[in-house]
Design a protein around this nucleic acid. Sequence first.
DNA 1: TCTCTCGCCACAGACGAG
DNA 2: CCTCGTCC
DNA 3: ACGTGTGGCGAGAG
Length: 360
Amino acid sequence: MGIKGLTKLLSDHAPGCMREQKFESYLDRKVAIDASMHIYQFMMVIGRQGDQTLTNDAGEVTSHLQGMFMRTCRMLEAGIKPVYVFDGKPPTMKGGELAKRKDKRDEAEAALAKAKEAGDQEEIEKMSKRTVRVTRQQSQEVMQLARLMGLPVFEAPCEAEASCAALCKAGLVYAAASEDMDTLCFACPKLARNLMSPASQGKPILEFDYEKILTELDMTWEQFIDVCILCGCDYCDSIKGVGPVKAVSLIKKHGNIETLLQHLDTEKYPVPEDWPYKEARELFKHPDVVNTDGLELKWTAPDEEGIVAFLVGEKQFGEERVRNTLKKLKAAKGKSSQNRLESFFGAVTVKSSTTGKRKE
DNA sequence: TCTCTCGCCACAGACGAG
DNA sequence: CCTCGTCC
DNA sequence: ACGTGTGGCGAGAG
């Protein structure tokens, strides 16, 4: 997923749309998150040895729950209020892209089988990462966990990113937190990247401001979408020889893809046959999303016993570990509201930002 | 020579004990 | 600080 | 039962 080279394009042509933010500034902020993407990544990485993952005795994979439980706790601990949005059905337009990926997967599966024969551990690990799948049941388990933790949860009718953008447009969340630049094509007012990286890499949060993108590029929404389609998106092929640089200059010159096509040297730059750029544009402009009319988002306290029953009872997590994690969460809750009060009354005491030692 | 695109590769969590 | 083993 | 994003590097075309 994504628009090829869009990050670099924006930092070249619209640097003002990007702003670094402190992690602390997200205290008490609501953000929409594409949960499916996170699940997918956890499945690839957590508890891996060869092609093994974390499982309970019944052989059910638990890597996704381990990852999501920890990450959700970290967010709540930091005072962030996440909404999880899950992917629905993929748009039919992804067909072409899909076929390609299936081929790649089949290749990886063959390579995996071969590596197993040969007992090549390194190759097994590499290939098994490329054949990861997230089942419907696994997604639903994460939904169940998220609800137990008191978060609002949505199943998007189609792509999760589009619904995240819709929640943001409706003012229900401050930003969509995603690594996927597609989100901006849906006119999402604010996109936050690296939201969870302070722990992993120490990168600051990077915000993209949609209005500033249009202002600095001096383009309309439609023109920006056309640039993204030319750069290369999931919905259709792009023109060979045209990348981010030419995409911007061509749209600046001609205004839209239709006009551009009339002037393009199709000898040098062959346009794909049956190129459905109009349909792609339509998907960005009018995606199928959750209905936000009269919608209210509510966060409630985690249901500790419910979580224990699920994770410990069914999935064989260590009870002490689970309860400990939830305890830390409770403690942090008091602290974060205290911070909020302090800043409300003007007592700006942001001190221990680096090493959070517990108080004596 | 420089610019741009493309293809191939690598990589990806979070915790806590020591 | 870090590396490394473990999480299920 | 659909499935990534990113950066780096070198090749090749213009």
